[in-house]
């Protein structure tokens, strides 16, 4: 494995870990959020909608700074988390997960919400008359029908997390081995004389990972659409 040096491997491994964990943690939240926005009418719905979309329109550096203001070690919530459960987010890879997750969240919610809005509530009604409880309606009818949207949301969120730079570097800085993800590493390499080689290799790696993610999601969506006889 001489093509990539140990620092590059470290950055790539960290990036994959951060993006994976961020997708895993934020997708369920995105589903709940999308469901609330698509199906429920409640006070503050507009506010929630705006809040979810905020990371999409705010400069990423500002998002990172806001995270620092809330979750920094001297900030109220950050201090509380450290005292209560010993969780330190700022300048740690777990903080990178938070930053990446929040930046990808609007994309995840949008994808799930769009597919939820495409599910005809009449079908859920039909399931109900056939004896399905609310939970059964969800996992027998609604969930399988939004699965392609869910996969699309997860891939978008994963890709966004993988490429997230501004909020990450602001919130958790660029510490080799701790918080140096691929984009941060590329940025760092480009500051050094002779760093173009590793930077290009990492850029190619990003491309490879992104393409694989898209291909995997295509495969999953195809499979869930399924052949006529596919057992479920």
């Amino acid at each position: 494995m001489s093509w990539l040096g140990p620092a590059e491997w470290q950055a790539l491994g960290l990036s994959l870990k951060v993006a994976f964990v961020a997708t895993l943690l934020f997708m369920p939240l995105a589903v709940i959020c999308a469901y609330a926005l698509a199906r429920c009418r409640f006070w503050g719905r507009g506010l929630l909608n705006a809040l979810v979309h905020l990371p999409l329109v705010l400069p990423p550096v500002v998002t990172g700074y806001v995270l620092l203001l809330i979750f920094g070690r001297t900030a109220p919530l950050g201090g509380f988390l450290e005292k209560a459960v010993g969780l330190v987010l700022a300048f740690d890879w777990k903080g990178a997960v938070l930053a990446a997750g929040i930046m990808g969240f609007p994309l995840m919610v949008r994808a799930v919400r769009l597919s939820l809005e495409n599910v005809d509530p009449k079908l859920e009604e039909a399931a109900k008359v056939l004896g399905a409880t609310r939970l059964q309606v969800w996992y027998r009818v609604t969930w399988p029908m939004i699965l392609p949207g869910f996969v699309a949301g997860a891939v978008l969120g994963f890709a966004k997390a993988l490429g997230e730079f501004g909020a990450t570097i602001t919130f958790v800085a660029n510490i080799p081995g701790h918080t140096r993800t691929v984009p941060s590493a590329i940025h760092a390499f480009l500051q050094l004389p002779g760093g173009e080689g590793p930077a290009l290799k990492l850029a190619l790696c990003s491309l490879g990972v992104a393409l694989s993610a898209v291909a995997l999601s295509e495969y999953l969506v195809q499979r869930s659409a399924g052949s006529d006889d596919a057992p479920r």
Binding site: D120, K122, L123, E125, A126, A127, V129, V141, P144, M145, S224, G226, D228, D229, R232
Partner: peptide, 15 residues
């Protein structure tokens, strides 16, 4: 009770 709707309302993801 069984209900047959005006539109069949079959579940599209099931055969």
């Amino acid at each position: 009770f069984g209900y047959v709707f005006q539109d069949a309302r079959l579940f599209p993801h099931l055969n």
